[in-house]
Design a protein around this nucleic acid. Structure first.
Lengths: 349, 349
DNA sequence: CTGAAAGCGCTTACAG
DNA sequence: CTGAAAGCGCTTACAG
C-alpha cells in the first residue's frame, strides 16, 4: 500500500450519508439557492466574484449535485435501459458496447440487465426500468407478448426492439436477415454437393430460430430436396442436448453429410462433436465467433454484425426521443457468408 | 404483422409525458394520497374494499410509481454502478453477469459503463454514477489515482475495486493472483525444457500487467535464467503491435522457443502468428478463452475465474452497504493452470 | 383504517 | 446580477 493511501471513513447511509446540498453551499457562500444552481449548471448571470465564492464552498463541502432530484424536476432522466438475454453471451458484448457509445454521445447513461431468456424476467426488468423513468428502452425480447408495455409507450417511453420483433404491439425493430442468411448458408452447402443436411437450432418460439429454420426449408425446397424430420432438431441450446442431436443425425444408415448450426452456441458444440468423429462432415454456422478461422478446418459462418445492430437500434431510439421519428419501422441488416473451409467440404459418401 | 398489433401513439416527452401520479389515482379513487401509497407499496391497514377501488384507478390510469421521486425521499436508490474497461471484451461478460445476479438478489439495478482504459473517462463515469446516487460502485480501474472518490466514499458510497487495486486510497479490492499465476505459467515452460522464453504483455502502468511481468521474472530467476531485454515486450495489446513483437522474438540468431502471453487478447494474436510459422513454439497464455481446447495444439492457459471475481466483489459491496464490513480488505483469488498441449511442447532446437 | 402537512434536493417562473 | 416562492412525485411523521 503506498504511503499516501489512507482509510476513508464511510458515513451512515441514511439520507445519502448527510451529503451537502445546494442549500448548504448557499449558506456557506452567503448567497441564494438559485445562485448556487446557476454556478453548478454553468448558467450565465453570475459575477466572477460570486462565482468564486460559490465554487469555494462547493469544494470545501465536497458538494456534488444530486441528479435524482434534478431528474424529478426536469422530466428526463438522461438514461436508457437495455434488456438483453445474457450479458455473458459473447454476442451481446459488442452489441452492448455499441449501444453504450451511442448513448454516451447523447449524454445518456446505460442501465442493462439480462432476461435469461425468461419472459417474466424480461417484463419485470423492463417495468422496473420504466419505474426508474428511463427515457427509452432497448429490448431483445424473450417473450412474445409485449402489450404490457403499451401504457409505458403511450406515456412517452421510447422503445426499440432488437434482434427479434415485438409481440402483439407495433414497434420499431432492428434485426438481421435471419431468413436470408440461413437460406444462403444452406444453399452454400447444397452448392457443394450436399443433400442430407441437418439443422440444429434454438426453441422455435424464439423468432430468430423460427426464421432460420424457414431459411433452411426454403433453400432445401429451392433445390428440390425433401426434408426428413430426423434432420431437424430444435430445442434448448445447452451442450448436452445439442450433442445428442448432432450424434443422432450423424449415426444410423443414412447420416447427414452436413450440418447447419443455427447459432453460435450450437456451432461451438457441433465443432466439438465433429472433432471426435473420423468422417468428414461439412458445417456452416449462423453467427461468427472468435478463432473460427484458426480451427482446422476453419469454420464457415453466416455472420451478423452485432455492433451494427446495437448502433442502429440506439440511433433509432434517440431519433424517437428527438421527435423526428413517428411510424414504427422494421430495419433489417444483411448477413454475410464467410467461407473458411468447413462449409466447402464435399459429402463424405 | 399480427392483426392484434396496433400502433401506440407516444405522448410528448415533457414531464414524463403527463404520466398519472399518485395524486391522480387518489382523485379518481376518491381517497387520500397516503392510501394510494399504502396500496402501491403493499402496506397493511387498508380495507379490501378501499384497496379494490384504488387498484381499479391504478389500472384504468396506467399508473406506475415514479421511483425517481421515491428515491429522493428514501435516500437509497437500489442501484449500483459498474465501471469496466470494455463491455465488448469477452473477459467482462461473465464478470458483468455475475455482478448482475448478486445485484438482482439484493433488489438492485446495475448501471454499467466502459472506461475504454482511459483514466479520465473512468473518473467521468464514476462521478456521473455518484451524481445519480448509486448506492455502491464497482470499479475496474483504468487510472492509478482514485483520490477523486474520497468525498464520495466519505459521503457513504460503498466502493469495491476489481481486478486491480485502487490508486492512492485505501479501499476494498478483489483480484486474481496475477503474480503467482504468471510465475506458475512460466515455471511450467521452464519445466518443459525452455530457457529462452518471451513475455508479451500490456502496458506496465496497468497493475495486472506489472504483476504478471513480475511473476515472469521471478520464475526465470528461480531457475537461474538471466532475462534478456529482447525477450520482453510491453505495450498496447492491439493485434499489430503484438504481431510485431512476436515476430521480433521469433526471428534473429537466438529466437525464443516459448512465449508467455500475458492476457487473452495477446494470446489470440500470438496463436495466429504461430500458426503461420513452421517451427514449433511453445505457448502459455494468461486468461482462458473459448475453444482454446479445440485448437491444434490446444492452448495451455493460466485461467482466472472472471465470474467469481465479479461475484465476490459484488458480495463485498453489499456487505459494506449492510454495514457489516469496516476495514478495507484485499481478496486474492487463485488461478489455475490448464495444460492442453501448447505449453508442453519441447524446445524446437 | 385513513389522510393532511411537511419535506427530500433540485429547477422553473418570476420579481426585483 | 440575484433570490424567494412554488412545485416535481413521492414518503415520513403525525393526528384523527
Amino acid at each position: 500500500m503506498p504511503e499516501t493511501a489512507h482509510r476513508i471513513a464511510r458515513q451512515d447511509r441514511n439520507r445519502y450519508g448527510n451529503r451537502p446540498t445546494m442549500k448548504d453551499v448557499a449558506a456557506r457562500a452567503g448567497v441564494g439557492l438559485k445562485t448556487v444552481s446557476r454556478v453548478v449548471n454553468g448558467e450565465p448571470g453570475v459575477t466572477p466574484d460570486t462565482e468564486r465564492r460559490v465554487q469555494e464552498a462547493i469544494d470545501a463541502l465536497g458538494f456534488r449535485r444530486n441528479d435524482s432530484a434534478r431528474v424529478l424536476r426536469k422530466g428526463r432522466t438522461a438514461s436508457i435501459g437495455l434488456v438483453l438475454e445474457d450479458l455473458a453471451d459473447p454476442f451481446y458484448g459488442p452489441l452492448s458496447r455499441a449501444v453504450e457509445e451511442v448513448s454516451r454521445a447523447h449524454g445518456s447513461l446505460l442501465i442493462n440487465g439480462s432476461s435469461a431468456e425468461d419472459p417474466d424476467r424480461e417484463q419485470e426488468l423492463a417495468l422496473a426500468l420504466c419505474a426508474r423513468r428511463v427515457d427509452g428502452l432497448l429490448i431483445i425480447p424473450a417473450g412474445d407478448d409485449h402489450r404490457y408495455l403499451e401504457p409505458e409507450i403511450r406515456a412517452g417511453v421510447a422503445t426499440v426492439f432488437l434482434d427479434r420483433p415485438a409481440g402483439r404491439i407495433d414497434a420499431d425493430v432492428v434485426l438481421s436477415d435471419n431468413f436470408g442468411g440461413a437460406r444462403d448458408g444452406v444453399a452454400h452447402l447444397i452448392a457443394h454437393g450436399h443433400r442430407r443436411i441437418g439443422f440444429i437450432g434454438d426453441m422455435p418460439r424464439i423468432h430468430t430460430a423460427a426464421e432460420r429454420l424457414r431459411g433452411y426449408r426454403a433453400a432445401m425446397e429451392d433445390a428440390g430436396i425433401p426434408v426428413e424430420d430426423a434432420w431437424m432438431s430444435l430445442g434448448v441450446t445447452d451442450p448436452e442436448r445439442v450433442r445428442r442431436a448432432a450424434e443422432a443425425m450423424l449415426s444410423g444408415p443414412t447420416p447427414v453429410t452436413a450440418v447447419f448450426a443455427a447459432n453460435n452456441r450450437v456451432t461451438v458444440t457441433v465443432v466439438r462433436v465433429l472433432a471426435e468423429h473420423t468422417r468428414r462432415v461439412a458445417l456452416v454456422g449462423f453467427d461468427d465467433f472468435e478463432l473460427a478461422d484458426l480451427l482446422r478446418p476453419g469454420v464457415t459462418v453466416v455472420a451478423q454484425d452485432a455492433a451494427q445492430l446495437g448502433r442502429k437500434a440506439a440511433e433509432r431510439l434517440f431519433g424517437q426521443l428527438d421527435g423526428t421519428l413517428d411510424t414504427p419501422e422494421r430495419i433489417e441488416l444483411p448477413t454475410r457468408l464467410i467461407a473458411r473451409g468447413s462449409g466447402e467440404l464435399p459429402p463424405a459418401d
